[in-house]
Design a protein around this nucleic acid. Sequence first.
DNA 1: ACCTGAACACCGTTCAAGT
DNA 2: ACCTGAACACCGTTCAAGT
Lengths: 202, 202
Amino acid sequence: MGRPHRPLLDRERIATTALDIVDERGEFSVPQVAKRLGVQTASVYHHVDGRDGIVELLRERVASAIESETLDRGPWDTALAAWARSYRAAFAAHPRAIPLLTTSPVRAPRVLDQYERAVGRLIDAGFALPDVMPVIIALENLVLGSALDLAAPESMWELSDESATPRLADALGAVRGSRTDQAFELALAGYLAHVRALLEAS
Amino acid sequence: MGRPHRPLLDRERIATTALDIVDERGEFSVPQVAKRLGVQTASVYHHVDGRDGIVELLRERVASAIESETLDRGPWDTALAAWARSYRAAFAAHPRAIPLLTTSPVRAPRVLDQYERAVGRLIDAGFALPDVMPVIIALENLVLGSALDLAAPESMWELSDESATPRLADALGAVRGSRTDQAFELALAGYLAHVRALLEAS
DNA sequence: ACCTGAACACCGTTCAAGT
DNA sequence: ACCTGAACACCGTTCAAGT
């Protein structure tokens, strides 16, 4: 067949298709992506750096939904909180992709730039330089830890033998609303209060 | 060949071998495990519920290093903190296994029992029942989020273009000691303070 | 009950051949 | 430059056949 007049494939379409498949089935393979695009498996390799390259594309695609403007609005602490919520929401929009994406943090240029701005806000707020990265990484830990929780099926807490863990069963039954959201907001509130105190102490 | 007089395989040896391989290479396959045990791939399937069953074995094996006694010693808050540190340390002992294990939380009976005891301590301390699970899940989020960070290679923060993110580069350079440990301890301290406040408010 | 050997469907990746 | 077809090494899983 040879080269077509206009390319059949591009990175955008590969990313979109792979994300669709992951949203539907929780996994993807290169042949599956190729088939859905009506193309041979090998063709995909002309546009993308193998399967890992596609995963990286997914990471960037999902992360592109993070509202980076949140970082510039309002006082540093509310800005950081809004950024964290938006970060988590971006993952939450593709729960089945989370296990694929959280195995290593997002380090795409667009996201690194957000870290740069977050660092800037903390420095400008008066944080001691050696404290800045721990403060940011702790927030990243919160977001990714919560994202994993978001990806875990509700059934994780379906206790096969309630009599073995009666108080756990009680506690689970007593939760109002979303366990996951409440846990995240709780951790975020604790984080913010502590980080504010850290600033005042320095 | 047929059945041997004494079994060549058991779940313990399969788990140990798989964990060894993961520690060395960051991944494992059923054929790799079989080969190292001097056995046919198919034989493994007589002892274990497929590849996923081996992953579950790894999860239990790694989690078995969590010192559950920490939950019973001292006041509820220091007990919870010690448990979280031990939980994180258990993962830290097998960093290359972390991506394999954190995709879904540990729900093996031995670990569920620890959750039961953690719930018990919180109830006894006087927490409102609907608050208990969010408090525990938030802690789990901290631990797993930090575990992911532990698994991420240091090189994640090697900035290819420092001039694009100068303040991030500064902040990274200023860190004293382990970024990861400091971030975890920071998040944990914030968590504890907030949870203590939650108890007093109720 | 437990191991083997063979089989099946699927995977990631490479590469020469075509336009 | 981009797509194909064929190939390679490897994977997870099943199953009849043996003891």
